[in-house]
Write a protein that binds this DNA or RNA. Sequence first.
DNA 1: AGTTTATTGAAATTATATTTCAATAATACA
DNA 2: TGTATTATTGAAATATAATTTCAATAAACT
Lengths: 142, 142
Amino acid sequence: MKREIEILDNFIRERGLRHTPQREVILRVFLSIEKHLSVDELYTIVKRRNPKIGYVTVYRTMKMLEDAGLCNEIDFGDGVSRFEHQYGHGHHDHLVCLKCGSYIEVINPEIEKLQDELARRNRFVPLKHKLQIFGTCNKCLG
Amino acid sequence: MKREIEILDNFIRERGLRHTPQREVILRVFLSIEKHLSVDELYTIVKRRNPKIGYVTVYRTMKMLEDAGLCNEIDFGDGVSRFEHQYGHGHHDHLVCLKCGSYIEVINPEIEKLQDELARRNRFVPLKHKLQIFGTCNKCLG
DNA sequence: AGTTTATTGAAATTATATTTCAATAATACA
DNA sequence: TGTATTATTGAAATATAATTTCAATAAACT
């Protein structure tokens, strides 16, 4: 957590931006929850800590945290963007349960390698990729 | 093309729905273009053939074609849904160019297999999956 | 302390997806 | 063929999330 706050402060200083209590609260709340959160969900929680913080500030701060490399916007195709922690989390893929909405993060270096090959074979320079497997999770099978 | 029209007709008959000229025109236009199209793009083209057809009819027809297994909704995360041909097209992944918006369809059975394993190891029953690699295409590198 | 200017937050706007509903037209059947 | 039934159409309205605007506020520098 401390390291992430440092990263934000550096990001802010380097660009001549300003440190504000709102930004710090939003980052702290975001980091304290190990879950994918939409701006709206995050806003609801942030509001509990400081009711004066508005939706748009949360929205803009998340965009900024993304630029700072602290979070990552993900899109499961349901019309809502969510954010996940980025710092200290390597790239991973998602198994998304269509019944309960939960997800599992998975890592598979072999798949990563095959993807890079795939791109290379098509003279394509990959920047990032997204692998989502949709289905039913163990809990929802019963 | 003929086969797809047949599939639509069967789908319509089986469910007690109705064959309409609008539906046929929309399907024909859709099939005639080998590209991912948004409802809005498709609507613009359909309108040229029959200016009386409305946006909502295109929208609803695409949903219907999806149910009939003739098209597939895809989401590159830019807020617009697009549709691609489904009949006769096996599952494939996408290399999406972030500069020009073009895309390449690729198939890699090895990746597919690894994905199934990944799901199984997590006691997850996969239904479908989505693999998108974002980057720069060959044309845009120059 | 005063000045500059980035930031905030409410409201407005944009953009796309989706629903509503009265008019229309496809199909079944007499 | 004519009529009844009801799915379909399309314009307008609505929903929803993302994004922009702008006046007031508050960091940060001198």
